[in-house]
């Protein structure tokens, strides 16, 4: 096995925190209609608090640190925090809408040597981007920011959340990425808000489009039988999320608080929080009876406990989007056969 993968597997088994996603702020200069952040009426971590958290994360062994928001560049002390992170030898990734990047800021970002800057691209025309993200001349500003980074040798990836509103521009978004010479990632999961409000549900792709996309895009897929001890994802094992208020969560989707860094050290939260213990001990197919016995289980890749929690109030339940995606994957691979229904509450697939 690849030595890096082997090490990651070991870190997961040992519950060593390796990767942290950190929402530095929920402030943003844009207003994407499907944004899942729910800002709270309390102060975000101060610069001093954030620098202290960095020291704690370094001591705990975290290597990969992803800064996200909100819009991270809307935080005036972003560079102070990111520079300190580099001094502490973190490998940093930055998620941004890129619209605030000036030549001077691009110089500073390049000097941080991020592993990757991921930029959201939610359409290929000014009208669609405006419709999703708001702002003024937003697409131009995104592409301008990306070019400033690329000119300085920063590795950029474009990330597109595919929705009903922008699906028709999928090819054009891919063409834009090709023109810029950057990788393009497409995501099909529209998350409910952090408080569970599923306000953008109507933007989820229709079933027939999921089938088409799986047929066109996905790498060869081999159905895999799930062992009872198998995990549907590695939530709680070697990664977590910190929100702008210093609250630690298992992941960006699973918003069950593990503890506050304003009240407890990171290592205490990581080792002792009930939600982490629960996930480490029980987050296996053995505890997901509906999923384990589902006829589509071997076609299911997108099951997410955070989504299940928000939708069903049950960490171990199935959830609609994963079931629909499993059906779409099945149908793209077996177009002539009837689509099995998951052992769940879905209406039959069309």
């Amino acid at each position: 096995m690849d030595p890096y993968q082997s090490l990651l597997d070991r870190l997961k088994r040992q519950h060593t925190p390796y990767a942290v996603t950190w929402e530095l702020t929920h402030r943003c200069n844009l207003a994407c209609f499907m944004c899942y952040n729910v800002p709270r009426a309390q102060p975000e971590l101060s610069t001093e608090e954030a620098l202290d958290v960095l020291e704690q994360l370094a001591r705990a062994g975290v290597l990969r640190l992803t800064f996200t928001g909100g819009e991270v560049l809307a935080r005036r002390d972003f560079l102070t925090i990111a520079r300190r992170a580099r001094e502490l030898d973190f490998a940093i990734d930055i998620k941004t809408n890129a619209t605030l990047i000036t030549p001077e800021l691009a110089d500073e970002l390049a000097a941080l040597h991020p592993v990757e800057v991921e930029v959201s691209l939610l359409g290929a025309t000014p009208e669609t981007v405006q419709g999703v993200m708001g702002g003024h001349r937003t697409l131009n500003r995104i592409l301008g920011g990306v070019r400033l980074l690329l000119n300085r040798g920063v590795r950029v990836t474009l990330n597109s959340l595919m929705m009903r509103i922008n699906l028709h521009e999928r090819e054009a978004m891919m063409a834009l990425a090709r023109e810029l010479g950057v990788p393009h990632r497409m995501v099909f999961k529209i998350s409910p808000d952090d408080d569970g409000n599923d306000k953008s549900r109507g933007q989820q792709l229709p079933f027939e489009d999921m089938v088409t996309l799986y047929g066109e895009m996905c790498e060869p897929f081999q159905p895999r039988p799930g062992h009872p001890r198998a995990r549907t994802c590695s939530v709680g094992l070697h990664a977590c999320l910190i929100d702008p208020y210093g609250v630690v969560f298992p992941c960006i989707e699973l918003r069950i608080p593990a503890g506050s860094l304003r009240q407890q050290p990171f290592e205490t939260i990581w080792r002792e929080a009930p939600i982490f213990r629960e996930l480490r001990e029980r987050h296996t197919l053995a505890h997901m009876p509906a999923c384990r016995t589902c006829p589509l289980q071997t076609y299911c890749e997108g099951r997410c406990s955070g989504a299940a929690w928000k939708e069903r109030g049950d960490l171990y339940a199935p959830h609609t989007l994963a079931c629909r995606q499993a059906q779409a994957r099945y149908h793209s691979l077996h177009p002539a056969e009837p689509i099995p229904s998951p052992a769940f509450f879905l209406e039959p697939a069309p």
Partner: peptide, 18 residues
């Protein structure tokens, strides 16, 4: 200076963005 690293039980992981 652009290389990130951490040592886990004596084994280092290096990440070089460049």
């Amino acid at each position: 200076p652009d290389t990130a690293f951490r040592v886990f039980e004596g084994e280092a992981v290096l990440i070089s963005p460049a």
